[in-house]
Structures are given as C-alpha cells and as structure tokens.
C-alpha cells in the first residue's frame, strides 16, 4: 500500500519533470513561435476548435441524455440493447469513414465536422448515463414510491442525483475524446487546431505541429478537470462509489 503510494509519487514527479523539460526544450527551439508570431490565426483556430467541440458535445448531450432516460424507464428497458448496439456500431466506424459519410451528406466545412464529432460523442454519453440509471438500487425507487413520491419526484430527487456522477463521467470521456478527434476536422475543411497539426506533419515542421498539438492537449486536460470538478460538486460523496463501480464494469 505505502510502497504503491511512493511509486505513484515518483512516477508523477518524473512525468511533471518530463513535461516541464519538454516545454523548456520546445521553448528554447522556438517551437511555440507560431503562437506568438501568428497569434491572430492561433486564436481563430482555437475558437474554431472550441466551437467544434462545444457544439457537437452539446448536440450529443441533448440527444443522448433523453434517450438514456427513455431507455431506462421500466416500460422501455427491454429495448435498451437495441439502442446500445446502434450506438456501439456508430463507434466502430473509423473516424475517416464517418467524416467521409458526413461530407457525403453535408458537404465540406464546419457542419459535417460537427456532425461527425457528434456521432462520436453520443455513445459514451448514452452508455454512461444508462449505466448510471441502471446502477440505482431498485429498492430506492420502491421506497420513494412507497412513501408517495410522484414519478417526477422520484426521477429528479432520487434517480438523477444518484446517477449524476456516472453521467458526468460519460460527458468527460466524450468531451476529451472529442477534443482530440476534432483535430481531424482539418481534412474536411472544418478548421480548428488540426490545421496546424496536419500542416506540421505534412511539412515536417515541428513548430506548427507542437503549436497545434500542445494547446489541444491542454484543452483536453482543462476540460477533464473542469468536468471532474463539476462531478464532485454536484454529487455527494456517498453516491460516487456506486457510480464508479457501475461505470468500470
């Protein structure tokens, strides 16, 4: 136990050292220069990237959460596997194929990129929300009913708070994946930091590559922490354990 802790600390320190070293190395070699020299372009790309992520995630939430609620109601529970399989299938299609499909329907540009990212985000959000609702002990719902709670009261006061941690977990996974995948939007003219990353790769230009990739990474880490924080704030400690076990299985 203690030994594990020490190892964890050592690994963490090494990791931090590596990251700092990397930044110093990149800085000394001028790999961040595009950010400063073309800061207007940089902020446009960041804005596009954020737009891609936020709009597609928002759409995914708006679609996936109500579906998760629907498919965990007693009446529809037996059809949940259909929804899960459809969502699973969508996930197994390679990113580029989704992009190609999106172009086929929506042409090139921002819209098909959002659409493709949306397709990718729906599954983790849906799956985690379903797992969250299903992990709620049926006795709680029975007790709520028995005490005279209406269906809406059971949903908002028992089900949602107890599933919240798992639901946020799904959002986290989806958004973090989404931020990375959004770099591919460049291929269909969707903009975003992928423009610099791909330019860097194609031209073997480390400065562009790093000036694109590092902000994407920081963005992913930032959103991860943000959503983790939201999860901690909105769900009482006592509901987290069950949620954790539910999502890891």
């Amino acid at each position: 136990m203690n030994q594990k802790k020490i190892i964890a600390i050592i690994v963490r320190i090494l990791l931090y050292a590596f990251v700092i070293g990397f930044f110093v190395y990149a800085g000394v070699n001028g790999y961040f220069s595009p950010i400063f020299e073309q800061s207007d372009t940089f902020w446009v790309l960041v804005g596009q990237h954020l737009n891609l992520v936020i709009i597609s995630s928002f759409l995914a939430i708006v679609i996936a959460l109500p579906l998760a609620v629907l498919f965990t109601r007693p009446r529809f529970r037996k059809y949940e596997w259909i929804a899960s399989n459809v969502a699973n299938l969508a996930q197994t299609v390679p990113s580029l194929a989704v992009l190609a499909l999106a172009i086929g329907i929506l042409g090139v540009g921002f819209k098909p990129a959002v659409f493709a990212l949306f397709i990718y985000s729906v599954l983790p959000i849906f799956r985690n929300a379903v797992a969250g609702f299903n992990s709620i002990n049926p006795d709680l719902i029975d007790a709520g009913k028995g005490m005279g709670m209406k269906a809406g009261q059971i949903f908002w006061r028992v089900e949602v708070p107890n599933a919240a941690y798992a639901i946020i977990g799904g959002l986290r996974t989806a958004v973090v994946l989404n931020i990375g995948t959004a770099a591919l939007a460049y291929y269909i003219g969707g903009g975003g930091l992928g423009v610099w990353i791909m330019t860097g790769i194609e031209l073997f230009d480390n400065a562009y590559l790093i000036s694109g990739a590092i902000p994407v990474t920081l963005m992913a880490i930032g959103f991860d922490y943000l959503l983790r924080g939201v999860g901690y704030v909105i769900s009482p400690k006592s509901t987290r354990q069950t949620a954790d076990t539910a999502t890891t299985t």
């Binding site: 006795d139 709680l140 007790a143 028995g146 009482p236 509901t239």
Partner: peptide
C-alpha cells in the same frame, strides 16, 4: 419500511 432500509444515498 423495507428490509434494505431504502435510505437515499444522495
């Protein structure tokens, strides 16, 4: 009242 107490964890 039920056997598993049914207290709300949240």
């Amino acid at each position: 009242v039920i056997q598993s107490n049914g207290l709300f964890p949240n």
